[in-house]
Design a protein around this nucleic acid. Structure first.
Lengths: 144, 144
DNA sequence: CTCAGATAGACAACTAGGTTGTCTGATCGT
DNA sequence: ACGATCAGACAACCTAGTTGTCTATCTGAG
């Protein structure tokens, strides 16, 4: 028995996240994107969404720019992003998502959305909205 | 804009988990338990809850017994558990939570429960039950 | 116009938390 | 009584992050 309801809630949150990610990663692997991890998928989505260099990506993901640079190096090796020098700022390397990268993020987003939709079918759409609102409160983590 | 509602849900789940854990870890640090991570707290709770050796702990936490053994080594170094040979089975090293360990799990559980209670006050107790039930469905991850 | 300070990125060393594989020794079931 | 299973130790490795240091470049206030 996991006697603390609070700890049980935390376990549930992590379990739900892990279940979603595991299924998305498995689907990506089946559809021609082996070796993609949740970190890589989220990073690529952030790049596609406007994080155009390593520093910006680090800020967006809440990690150091060095960590972001490592993730970018992996994404580049796997052919998901392309880096080129910014003619307007010699310090920057501007990131561009490749067509293979767009394929990967499209599959990832579609699978995440499908999981959410199936879950919505199971628990009811009104519950989904309630859960998401309640989770936002919890994630906000207002300190005493 | 994080345009995929599914990915946004996953981010929300992880964000809620991280917010809870960060506050519990900060509280543990303030109350005389610096250096305690979420992994250590969850492992110690599982040991206290009956996972009496490394293999059992690994099974309980869903990790390899080698990973569990490393966590136990850290817990032992920090004075949270004590290992001794099982007179009935010479292969086993039986785990026992020390009094300092009991102090740590008590603080951790209290803080997790307090966070859940404050959240319950904010969103309403009936929502909490709905969210937990819905999360259990999601975490179950029924495959297509 | 200059120069101090902020910023982008590269490189290195380190940590946490996990993995797989191999090995020894102890126990259990048929 | 012996083969299969199980507990644990040890090693090598991986991912994803950290901090610190360094250089090059850009920017804004005097």
């Amino acid at each position: 028995m996991d006697s603390s309801p609070g700890a049980r809630l935390a376990t549930l949150l992590l379990g739900a996240f892990d279940a979603m990610v595991a299924q998305v990663v498995a689907d990506l692997e089946e559809r021609g994107h082996p070796g993609v991890t949740a970190t890589l998928e989220f990073a690529l989505a952030a790049i596609a969404d406007g994080a155009q260099d390593a520093s910006a990506l680090g800020r967006r993901l809440g990690v150091s720019k060095q960590a972001a640079a490592k993730t970018i190096a992996t994404l580049e090796q796997l052919g998901y992003v392309h880096r080129e020098s910014d003619p307007k700022d010699a310090r920057r390397k501007v990131l561009a998502v490749t067509s293979r990268g767009r394929d990967m993020t499209a599959i990832g987003a579609a699978r995440f959305d499908e999981l959410r939709r199936r879950w919505s079918d199971a628990v009811g759409p009104e519950r989904v909205a309630q859960v998401e609102a309640a989770l936002a409160v919890l994630a906000d983590g207002e300190r005493p």
